[in-house]
Amino acid sequence: MKDVQLSNPADQPKQHGSAEGHGQPSSAFEGVPANALPLTASEDRQWATLAHFGGILGFIPSLLILLIFKDRGPFTAQEAREAFNFTFPPTLLAFAAWLLSLLPTVGGLFAVVNALIWVAIALSSVVAGIQVNRGRPYRYTVNLRLFK
């Protein structure tokens, strides 16, 4: 195959480090700033809401949101920490109940306990998520607040 030459030099693709760019990257390949930008007020409320709604899946969503956004939005950091502190112990209890549900004789009892734990976490997380979505901070009535 032959290399096709375009007749107009402006149609030629620019090469990184070419004489035209003087060694500077072209605008299509600019770098990302090292520090992420702060969240806007609506983004802050959105991520805080998702931290609570994520409690339906356990503590992992609130932990990830806390680790990623803790320095970018104060409301998100506060609410993700609250959601994580609330969901962490019951998630561990639900996991233990799930393991014990595999036992042949008492497994059914632990399966019911596991289901009740998840229902309680889910309902509490939805109530909290609705309140936080309205812009109101939420405090769970029963929360160990292990991590500050």
Score class of each variant (00 low, 15 high):
42 S>D: 12
71 D>T: 12
45 R>N: 11
123 L>Y: 12
55 G>W: 08
89 P>E: 13
81 R>P: 09
116 L>H: 07
116 L>M: 10
53 F>L: 15
87 T>Q: 14
65 I>W: 06
57 L>E: 01
114 N>F: 14
84 F>E: 13
49 T>V: 00
75 F>C: 04
73 G>L: 02
68 I>L: 09
60 I>R: 06
67 L>R: 14
47 W>G: 00
54 G>Y: 10
79 E>P: 14
55 G>E: 12
108 G>C: 06
60 I>N: 03
122 A>G: 09
76 T>Y: 07
88 F>N: 04
80 A>C: 14
63 L>V: 10
60 I>L: 13
81 R>N: 15
69 F>A: 00
94 A>T: 02
108 G>H: 09
73 G>V: 02
77 A>G: 06
42 S>T: 10
53 F>W: 09
110 F>R: 05
52 H>A: 12
73 G>S: 10
44 D>I: 02
115 A>C: 06
101 S>N: 07
57 L>M: 11
110 F>V: 11
105 T>D: 00
109 L>K: 05
81 R>C: 13
60 I>D: 09
52 H>P: 01
42 S>R: 07
107 G>W: 01
112 V>A: 12
119 V>C: 08
80 A>M: 15
52 H>K: 08
51 A>G: 08
113 V>W: 04
73 G>K: 06
72 R>Q: 15
123 L>W: 09
49 T>A: 00
113 V>R: 01
117 I>C: 03
67 L>G: 07
50 L>K: 01
77 A>S: 13
115 A>S: 12
73 G>Q: 08
73 G>C: 10
45 R>L: 10
50 L>E: 00
84 F>L: 15
100 L>M: 12
83 A>W: 13
119 V>D: 04
76 T>A: 05
60 I>W: 08
40 T>H: 02
72 R>E: 14
117 I>P: 06
86 F>P: 03
114 N>L: 11
83 A>G: 14
90 P>L: 10
102 L>F: 03
63 L>T: 05
40 T>P: 04
79 E>M: 15
101 S>R: 03
66 L>F: 14
120 A>H: 02
50 L>W: 13
64 L>Y: 13
63 L>F: 15
91 T>G: 06
69 F>S: 01
92 L>R: 00
79 E>A: 14
110 F>T: 06
44 D>T: 05
91 T>N: 02
55 G>P: 12
89 P>R: 07
112 V>Q: 09
